[in-house]
């Protein structure tokens, strides 16, 4: 069985998932040994979410759809990774606190606007996160190190923790 991964973007700039494309040929090598169950930016969507070995989530939890997606993904995923500052900390959207959001929404969208957003939160505010990869966007060496570790799940039955800023920056 090859590991099944899935990439999800919440509310974000998509820079983190574009970093994967910057791996170029290396990404293709990784993909040969992985099954990608979901990647909206690049491939047609599936209606049902299968069981996932590794779910990669980027972006801030902003809408109720974001929140529901994170919960569904956690339910289906053995291992959940929050990638980038938005998923890890909520980043720029979270600079506006919940109580200040109505005023901010009125400023940007006018007084009669029905907001989609509920708040701006990191993924760990909703579900348990197994690994966080920092950076806006994360650097390529870190991503490469992370992708390298994915197949180890099968052999070691657990993930080698990625030491950010040490061995992967050689």
């Amino acid at each position: 069985m090859i590991p099944r991964i899935a990439i999800f973007d919440l509310t974000d700039c998509e820079g983190c998932e574009l970093q994967f494309l910057s791996l170029k040929e290396k990404l293709l090598d990784f993909i040969e040994d992985l099954e990608i169950a979901n990647w909206r930016l690049l491939q047609p969507g599936e209606n049902q979410l299968p069981e996932i070995d590794v779910a990669i989530i980027q972006g801030t939890v902003v809408t109720s759809a974001d929140q529901e997606l994170v919960q569904k993904v956690r339910h289906q995923a053995k291992f959940l990774v929050a990638i980038g500052e938005c998923a890890r900390t909520g980043w720029i959207p979270s600079w506006i606190k919940k109580e200040a959001r109505p005023k901010a929404l009125a400023y940007v969208y006018g007084p009669n606007y029905q907001p989609r957003a509920i708040d701006a939160l990191p993924v760990k505010a909703i579900v348990k996160v197994d690994l966080e990869i920092p950076g806006c966007p994360p650097d390529l060496k870190t991503l490469e190190g992370f992708l390298n570790d994915i197949p180890n799940l099968k052999t070691e039955n657990s993930f080698k923790k990625i030491e950010i800023g040490t061995e992967n920056r050689k």
Binding site: L10, T11, A65, P93, K103, V108
Partner: peptide, 10 residues
């Protein structure tokens, strides 16, 4: 359906 990130307000 993108969630509001409110950049202008930020």
């Amino acid at each position: 359906t993108e969630g509001e990130r409110l950049f202008e307000a930020v």
